[in-house]
Write a protein that binds this DNA or RNA. Structure first.
Lengths: 129, 129
DNA sequence: TGGTTATGACTACACCTGTAGTCTGAACGC
DNA sequence: GCGTTCAGACTACAGGTGTAGTCATAACCA
C-alpha cells in the first residue's frame, strides 16, 4: 500500500480529548464556541481552551480555516479512528494485545442491560457468519 | 459504610505498570529480580527500575518487606482491580460511561477468533440468565 | 481617525513521567 | 578490623500536560 501520510495521530492528551469531543459533535467551530461548550463543563478558562486548540493544531489533529477575524477549527482525525487507537492501546497494555480477555472482563464487571447483551450477542453472531 | 482506606489507587503510570506486571506474575521479589525481568524487555537501566519501585511504594501500590540487606516487594493492589479501573477510565472517557458501545467497537474492529466469539457469547448468555 | 475590543500568539509554571546518575551506609569476605 | 560491594535513598533533568496570564494586532464603532 502507498505510504499513507494520515494525520500522524500524535497522542492526544486527556484535556485535549475534551476539546476534540466538542468538535466531533459539531464542526467547524470558533475558539469561542468550543470554549462555551467545554469551559463550562470542565471549569476551564478561555486561555486554557485556546492553548489546547493550539496544541491540537500543532499536533495535526485539527485544521484551521480563517473566517473573518478569527479561526474555525475542524477535526482532522476521526472520532472512530481515535476510539480505535485508544482502545487498542488499552488492549495492548493490559490484555496482551488480545481483545477477548477485555471482552470477558467487561462482560463480568460492567453493568449491561438485557438489551445491551442482546445487541452484542447479535453483533457477535453476525461476525461468526 | 466505614471509610475504606483501600490502597488509594493513585494512578499508576505506563512504565510503573510494567513493574507491577512483573510483580503480579510472581511476588515477592527483590529489586534485582524485578530488574532482571523488566529491564531487559524495556531496555531500562537498574536505577530506572529502582525509581519506579520507589514511586510505586510511595503511591501505596507496593509493600516492602525487609529481607536481609534488601527489600522484597509485593503488590498491594490486585491486577484485576487495576484492569477494572483502567478499563473503566476508558469507558468513561471515550464511551460516555457505557460499556456497550465499547463492546460494539471491539466486536467490529478487533480480530476475534471463532473460539473467542463462542466464549464471549457463552459468557453473555450466562449474564442474561 | 482614534479608542475599544476580540482573538490568536507567546509565555509561564508546576507537576507528572521516563530515564538515569550519585551518595551513603550496611553486610560480607578476608 | 577494613576494604569492597551491593542496595536503597536522594538528586537530576528533559519532555509532556494541565492550567492560565499577558501581548500584539486587526477589526469595529463612534
Amino acid at each position: 500500500m502507498p505510504t499513507e501520510d494520515e494525520p500522524a495521530a500524535e497522542r492526544i492528551s486527556d484535556a485535549e480529548h475534551a476539546v476534540m469531543e466538542a468538535l466531533w459533535q459539531r464542526s467547524p467551530q470558533s475558539a469561542a464556541e468550543v470554549c462555551d461548550v467545554v469551559a463550562g463543563a470542565r471549569g476551564w478558562s478561555m486561555p486554557t481552551v485556546k492553548t489546547l486548540l493550539a496544541r491540537l493544531v500543532a499536533k495535526g489533529a485539527l485544521a484551521t480555516q480563517p473566517e473573518g477575524r478569527r479561526f474555525l477549527y475542524t477535526p482532522l482525525i476521526e472520532r472512530s479512528a481515535y476510539l480505535g487507537t485508544e482502545s487498542r492501546r488499552l488492549v495492548d497494555r493490559l490484555f496482551g494485545g488480545r481483545a477477548a480477555p477485555l471482552f470477558a472482563h467487561l462482560a463480568e464487571n460492567e453493568q449491561l442491560t438485557d438489551d445491551d447483551i442482546a445487541e452484542i450477542t447479535r453483533l457477535l453472531r453476525e461476525l461468526r457468519k
